[in-house]
């Protein structure tokens, strides 16, 4: 089955992973900007990272027939340094109109601090002024519930933000309902230990339906599986769900969300084979 991985940090992965993704049916990836595993020392370091995302990575993906898209932002963890974060926000407009850039993300909260909230709001403002899509990172583990509720409060407080243009990512059993009820898209991240197993993702689909729901691998430099979406596909098949249902979650939903960005230029392989 063809699928789109809406969240995969390919800069952290080897080229062999692109080949494995292509063989598994992945036709496009979207790569949010994130933490490098250490705090960067200057805004110039981010500029190089954004060039990597918008110039080099699409070429590497294209060798395997995969379309590569990205998002730019200052991530929540480094947002604690407000002055550096503001320097990074100032350079984001240089990259927002790059051909493979889908919007501002993954912005959000990490430890739910005041500084993180300040920088989150400033990036929401940037996205609103440029009419960009937003991809939101919700915090990990014990901070997720509180942080997700805070993020939804902040988004609700900005009347320019249309929920259908926002993806709330890394939802789990205790947060998915809040995001869906307010009209946002949601992403379930398949990290077996710290986020969501393919089985629990399938459970949430059974409980909440297939509207505005996606699954992603969030493959990165830590323990993660860039092909995790195929594990979800397998689990859904084993439970007897139809190919049509599965395709909606792993292909049609990401396509519908990303298509709101005018830079999303994607020729469906399904159309080519029809």
């Amino acid at each position: 089955m063809y699928y789109i991985d809406p969240h995969n940090h390919m800069v952290s992965r080897v080229t062999d992973d692109y080949e494995r993704l292509a063989r598994a049916g992945c036709v496009a990836v979207s790569e949010p900007a994130f933490w490098a595993g250490f705090d960067r020392g200057s805004a110039e370091s981010f500029r190089d990272y954004f060039r990597h995302l918008t110039e080099f990575e699409p070429k590497r993906a294209a060798q395997y027939g995969i379309k590569h898209y990205c998002w730019v932002c200052i991530n929540a963890k480094e947002a604690e340094n407000v002055s550096l974060a503001r320097e990074v926000i100032a350079i984001l407009p240089e990259f927002l109109d790059r051909p493979n850039c889908l919007g501002v993300g993954e912005i959000g909260l990490n430890k739910n601090t005041r500084n993180e909230a300040i920088i989150f709001l400033e990036q929401v403002d940037l996205a609103a002024r440029h009419n960009e899509l937003i991809l939101v990172h919700t915090p990990h583990l014990e901070d997720k519930y509180q942080g997700t509720r805070m993020i939804l409060d902040m988004l609700r407080g900005d009347s320019r933000i249309r929920p259908e243009k926002v993806l709330i990512d890394h939802v789990e059993e205790h947060t998915i309902r809040y995001a869906l009820e307010e009209g946002y898209w949601v992403g379930m991240t398949l990290y077996p230990v710290t986020k969501c197993t393919p089985q629990r993702a399938a459970d949430m689909v059974e409980m909440y339906g297939t509207e505005r729901i996606m699954v992603n691998s969030a493959g990165d430099w830590g323990p993660s599986n860039p092909l995790a979406v195929t594990d979800f596909i397998h689990e859904m098949r084993m439970r007897g769900h139809s190919e049509e249902t599965i395709r909606k979650i792993v292909y049609e939903n990401p396509l519908a969300f990303f298509s709101q960005c005018p830079r999303w230029q994607f020729e469906s392989p399904l159309a080519a084979t029809a």
Binding site: N112, E142, K144, Y145, Q146, R149, M150, E172, H174
Partner: peptide, 9 residues
Amino acid sequence: QLIFSRPYD
């Protein structure tokens, strides 16, 4: 999940 979560204010 909620047992392992910080409360929301």
